[in-house]
């Protein structure tokens, strides 16, 4: 009976994952491996293709209602162009199109703002997923906030991995593939933002988790009882223990020949914390050095006094 409960929990979290994160790893890998027929992503590899990509997405804009229905086909935080749909001041396409008359410095900032807009939307999706974890909504509300504040960037980085390969990443609802080299060619410190995520993702992808494994792993990350400032750690640890058991069983059944996968996965959580710390420091540096930068209020809330 206990194993049956753990399997039921795995199924429940997988269903919630599919509900809130429509661009699954399965879909992303199909796009990346060219198995989607004619629907190949548009490739952005230089400034010219970036301009063309902007045009391309402009033609394919999704009506707001449809977008709300989809909530997000884009799973990770680097969702360039997504701001276009919201009409928010953070949107990339919501602003004027790129022209030679603009100061060159604005391009990176505009792109960065569009990423922020998509990230904020992704935080909302992760919050909905967290609320679907049995017992999460019964925790002290302040502890729920703390778990999200500390967990959400880690979750977003894990969710970015399926969208990436060694050469680049899918963005904009899987419609665009942006090359790693292009991201590296942006001016500093923007050029330094994605490289650590690529390095992590390439290694993480070798574990070959599928979407049902991912759902459990994300729940484990969210339910970390060692986040600073938690008021009532015990119920969080109890919830996490159950999800950990479910994950362990899931990996045994789903990857019977992959030895020590559970242990390897848990080790990734240490790497993740370092990546998030570095990411937050980079954002703080940007805030100091970029005169025109504004940080999305939700991301500001999350990153303030984080590390």
């Amino acid at each position: 009976p206990e194993a049956a409960d753990l399997r039921a929990l795995a199924r429940h979290l997988y269903e919630a994952y599919l509900k809130y994160f429509p661009l699954t790893k399965a879909k992303a890998r199909a796009i990346l491996s060219g198995k989607t027929g004619d629907n190949m992503p548009f490739v952005i590899h230089d400034m010219k293709s970036l301009m063309e990509g902007e045009q391309f997405i402009n033609c394919k804009q999704v009506p707001i209602q449809e977008l709300q229905h989809q909530t997000s086909t884009l799973t990770a935080g680097l969702g360039g162009f997504a701001g276009a749909h919201s009409g928010s001041e953070y949107g990339f396409l919501g602003m004027s199109s790129i022209s030679g008359e603009e100061p060159p410095d604005t391009l990176e900032l505009r792109f960065f703002h569009s990423c922020q807009s998509r990230s904020a939307e992704a935080v909302r999706e992760v919050t909905e997923f967290a609320k679907s974890i049995p017992g999460f909504s019964d925790l002290d509300l302040n502890d729920q906030v703390t778990l999200l504040k500390y967990g959400v960037i880690e979750v977003l980085i894990i969710m970015m991995s399926p969208l990436m390969n060694k050469d680049g990443t899918l963005i904009s609802y899987g419609q665009i593939f942006m090359t790693r080299e292009f991201l590296k060619s942006l001016r500093k410190p923007f050029s330094q933002m994605m490289e650590p995520k690529f390095e992590f993702s390439v290694k993480f992808n070798t574990l070959e988790l599928d979407d049902s494994d991912m759902a459990l792993f994300l729940a484990v990350i969210i339910l970390s009882g060692d986040r600073p400032g938690l008021l009532n750690v015990k119920p969080i640890e109890q919830l996490q223990e159950t999800v950990l058991h479910s994950l362990e069983l899931q990996l045994k059944l789903n990857h019977p020949v992959s030895l020590q996968l559970f242990a390897k996965l848990l080790q990734k959580m240490t790497d993740l914390r370092q990546i998030v710390t570095d990411h937050v420091h980079l954002i703080q540096l940007l805030k100091k050095t970029e005169v025109d930068m504004c940080l999305h209020p939700l991301l500001q809330e999350i990153m303030k006094d984080l590390y």
Partner: peptide, 20 residues
């Protein structure tokens, strides 16, 4: 609570998307 107003809002609103 004020420090994390939007997160509180996201956690308490059921499914309706908060204006981000």
């Amino acid at each position: 609570k004020e420090k994390h107003k939007i997160l509180h809002q996201l956690l308490q609103n059921s499914t309706s998307p908060v204006d981000l």
